[in-house]
Amino acid sequence: MSARSENFLLRRYIEKAMVDLPAMPTTVMRVVRAIEGGEASAAQIEKIITADAAITSKVLKTVNSPYFGMPRTISSVNQAIQILGLNQLRNVTLSIGVLNALNTTSPRIQALQQQCWEQSFASASAAHRIAVKKGLAKPQQEAVLIGGLLHDIGQLFLLTLFNIPYTEVQTRSKKQIAPLHEVERQVLGTTHANLGASLAERWSFPADLVEMIRDHDGDPTAETLNPTVACVHLADRIVNRTIEPESAEEIYPLDPKFAEWLNLSDAELTEIAEATMKDMEQAKVAASA
């Protein structure tokens, strides 16, 4: 069978797997819609979450991880809302929903998922730091947190359900010293960013989040620059280059127009990178929550 035929079949399997994925848990979507609507009270959000014992347990386990640096143990959803705020709680709930949908019993895949989440937690922190440094408005600062956290859900999907072929894609990218998204197109006919955006649309994620997921590797066709996408893009590059410094600039290239808009000095980038390395240590604990 030719490589082209194999790639075609793999693409068909990927498309079918996306259709067969379970829906986002009802509780998660109710929380997201209520918070996005802007009219729900903290008491209403608490009622939605606490009606689902499994989601409640996972929310409390996550917010009590060192990543959030709580001064004391959070024992109720009400406390979590008061301290984190509704938008941050939405972020936590969405990440729990994604993990539920991509559940696996394989210890090896679970380890890869945790590694992916560690990088995502670190990306969220880095994106937020960049947004603050660039003086973005508070809603945009909160948006890049969830964008950084969920920008690689397409990669999480591929690592979970197509581990062997996707690991080969990653290996080829490193051997050829070629951008990962270009090798993905060659082998899969698409990219993890586009797959992630398709998943986000299927799960009815907010439009701005879909855009951050789809364009986090850069979009050469875009006529206007979205600051939140730029923050997530740079955060992703900082984290990946911190983890894999060898040939990282070629494998994870920085989009020129994003770099021009960000206009951060080498000292500022170094400061963000050093803080991100510390975040990654905390993220290891948060990702295992």
Rank of each mutant, 00 (worst) to 15 (best):
M1F: 15
M1L: 15
M1R: 12
S2G: 13
Y13N: 04
I14G: 04
I14R: 06
A17H: 03
A17R: 08
D20L: 14
L21F: 10
L21Y: 11
P22W: 04
A23M: 15
P25F: 15
P25S: 04
P25Y: 07
M29I: 10
V32H: 03
I35P: 00
G38E: 09
S41Y: 06
A42I: 04
A42N: 10
A42R: 08
A43N: 15
K47H: 03
K47L: 06
T50H: 02
T50N: 08
A51E: 02
I55N: 10
S57V: 08
S57Q: 05
K61G: 06
T62I: 11
V63H: 05
P66N: 05
F68H: 09
G69W: 14
M70A: 12
P71E: 07
V77C: 13
A80K: 05
I81E: 10
I81V: 12
I83P: 09
I83M: 15
I83A: 13
L86E: 14
L86W: 05
R90G: 07
R90E: 14
N91E: 13
V92W: 05
S95G: 14
G97Q: 15
G97I: 03
L99S: 01
L102Q: 10
T105H: 03
S106F: 09
P107D: 15
R108Q: 06
R108T: 11
Q113E: 09
Q114A: 06
W117S: 06
A124T: 07
A124K: 05
S125K: 02
A127Y: 00
I130L: 07
K133D: 03
G135K: 06
A137D: 11
P139W: 02
E142H: 06
A143V: 02
I146K: 04
I146S: 09
H151A: 05
D152Q: 13
D152Y: 04
I153Y: 00
G154N: 00
G154Q: 02
L156R: 00
L156M: 01
L158M: 14
L159P: 00
Y166I: 07
Q170G: 08
T171N: 12
T171S: 07
S173L: 02
K174M: 14
K174C: 02
K174D: 03
K175C: 09
Q176T: 05
V183P: 03
E184Q: 01
R185N: 11
V187K: 07
L188E: 12
L188V: 11
L188K: 13
A193N: 15
G196A: 05
A197V: 09
S198V: 15
E201H: 04
P206L: 11
P206Q: 01
D215K: 07
D215W: 12
H216Y: 01
H216C: 13
D217F: 08
G218Q: 04
G218I: 02
T221R: 10
T221A: 12
E223Q: 12
N226P: 05
T228S: 06
V232L: 03
V232R: 02
V232D: 03
L234H: 13
D236L: 03
V239L: 13
V239C: 06
R241G: 15
R241M: 11
I243H: 12
E246P: 04
E250R: 14
Y252S: 07
D255Y: 03
P256D: 12
K257W: 06
A259W: 09
A259D: 10
E260N: 12
W261H: 02
L264S: 09
E268H: 08
E268V: 15
L269A: 01
E271M: 10
E271F: 06
A275M: 07
D279N: 13
M280V: 08
M280L: 11
V285F: 11
A287F: 03
S288H: 10
